[in-house]
Design a protein around this nucleic acid. Structure first.
Lengths: 343, 343
DNA sequence: GTGAAAGCGCTAACAG
DNA sequence: CTGTTAGCGCTTTCAC
């Protein structure tokens, strides 16, 4: 009575058991074509399929239809806490549509191309890229291969691929406006790598927001990466080279924590002596000392929207937008302090 | 000259271009059968394949051979920071062997079965499960379906499936021994859910380690989950019901942070008034206030080893072990304090 | 060492 | 509404 372990139950077996032709079974089991089948036959087929524990072979269907119901996702480092929620959003969208998600960790950017080639061999229906650097030849390659793809968390400036991003400039404006409203004037920036779009966008955001308030950037240092270690190094340079700023807008939380490290070593107190802001609101930054004022991104929604756009493309629907820009929000904690009353 | 975008380059096209039969191409491009082909023909075929940008269609090969070169991974919550490094280990092993990894987030345990069924339909070659609860019918189902599978981070007590785990008892012994050596005697435990193996194992580990030192558990509360919120609730109960302990061994870091929350609210200082230990050494617990003394697990290796075992099984090699137990290590920070000199 | 031929399980014209 | 037929691209006996 129990459904069999499937192993080798094919559409043929079901057809035999139901006393109909295989194509009838195929139609009966395909939601889109079910309507072509009489209610009577439908029942018999479904019953037979159920009894035998039939499970359509996706590999066979993929060969025939060219659609595998799989997508690939490339992330630079899955242990970076911004990516899990993005993946979760992607996977939730995929699961809801009956797709599976190949997740790959692109440790070294040179490996991205071979990974995409392997995905092509696997005949994925589309790709979500969380890794494109500025002006990436990979984007060209994907375009030429005629593959559906969406970028997430990084836009393609040349507009070849649709993208879902958070508004980096707005994010930095929120941070700067917050600091200015607290009375800060000498504001520095620990910038992200200037060869990735987010690094550039956030830096421009800081500069523009400052300009809007009639101020200019006190000083800036570029980090080699979005890591605590890079933040530490950059903060050291910032303090060694320039006059100490009243506040530092960091390109992300990890960098801000690296800045914390340096400040603690040098006996500079946050926020009494200097205010710090981050970006991402990664888990536990509300638990560090002091709790970090930062920018919260809708990471899960970023992933979800990217996946939805991808599926729209795959299923031939016109995408509703080419670039989707989501709104970040400011989360005020204790790493920023009001200095308006002081001279 | 540039390799074509593949789209429709098949083995036939290569055969035609090389002036040989398709089966020759198939052999030439299969590392295991390459030796059957003359060096001369080999060169011609490889050249043709390269020139055309040929990319073997895995869906076709899967249909023919029954092997898809894909595995599935089920995790309960990818945003829980223990899982990304495990996934990273799995993915690294898979990539090295030319496999892809389907990652799924099993939000609700009732969804696990349908997900496994869809994976079966997708004809994955094997499964890594990070989700089994004690005595899970899913394990039976997988066994019956004849699917290769390995558990990670959770053992199957009935021994039906191979597993890679960290030594939970040893972990707790490390924590307890550390606290005892600091002079603590009244030691409590915030236990994990007793319907998952790790919850039970860690609790037993605490009790045994205490017994080994001639002590007994001062008090214990069970958390509803491995979350900060659950830790908060359990810590509240612990303080409300029992005499305040000198130290609390927590079943994991999130729970320990929940305990921090309660202690802070009640003005009980860590570590001056009470020592706290965690488990997992998740990112940033070295940055919280105070930095958490905890147990570090080899998460990445857990994933790697699980994947390696799975591939051994898939490729017909006898697995080198049925259960692999990895060693955790103690990381001492500032949430535990020496009280030996005090009365 | 290479070619011929069959078929993995499924879907999609095309008939009827 | 259902059956017939062909074939997706690849691998693998079986011949020669």
């Amino acid at each position: 009575m129990n459904p069999q372990p499937s192993s080798t139950v094919t559409i043929r077996d079901v057809a035999l058991a139901a006393g109909v032709h295989v194509s009838t079974v195929s139609r009966a089991l395909n939601p889109d074509k079910r309507s072509l089948i009489s209610a009577e036959v439908l029942k018999v087929v479904e019953e037979a399929a159920r009894k035998l524990g039939y499970r359509p072979n996706r590999a066979a269907s993929a060969l025939r239809t060219g659609r595998t119901h799989t997508i690939g996702v490339l992330v630079p480092d899955i242990t970076n806490p911004v990516f899990p929620p993005i993946l979760q959003g992607i996977e939730a969208s995929a699961a809801a549509r009956g797709y599976f998600v190949f997740v790959t960790n692109v440790v070294d950017h040179a490996l991205a191309r071979p990974i995409v080639e392997r995905m092509l061999a696997q005949r994925v229906d589309g790709l979500v890229l969380a890794i494109a650097t500025r002006d990436d030849p990979l984007v060209d390659y994907i375009g030429k291969a005629g593959l559906q793809a969406v970028l997430v968390n990084r836009a393609d400036e040349t507009g070849r691929l649709p993208a879902v991003v958070s508004d980096d400039r707005l994010a930095m404006k929120l941070a700067v406006d917050h600091l200015v409203s607290l009375g800060h004037r000498r504001i520095a920036h620990l910038a992200g790598p200037q060869n990735v779009p987010t690094g550039v966008g956030r830096r421009q955001g800081v500069e523009q927001a400052l300009r809007d308030r009639g101020l200019e950037l006190a000083s800036v240092e570029e980090c080699e990466g979005y890591s605590r270690e890079a933040g530490r190094a950059a903060m050291q340079r910032l303090l060694d080279v320039y006059e100490r700023p009243q506040a530092v807008v960091c390109c992300n939380d990890l960098v801000a924590l690296g800045a914390y490290d340096v400040l603690r070593e040098r006996g500079i107190r946050v926020p009494q002596d200097i205010s710090i802001t981050g970006h991402n609101d990664m888990p536990l930054v509300d638990m560090v000392n002091p709790p970090l004022t930062t920018i919260r991104l809708p990471h899960r929604e970023l992933g979800w929207r990217a996946a939805e756009m991808l599926f729209d493309g795959i299923e031939g629907r016109a995408p509703s937008a080419f670039t989707v820009v989501l709104r970040p929000e400011l989360v005020v904690r204790e790493s920023t302090r009001d200095v308006a009353g002081e001279l």
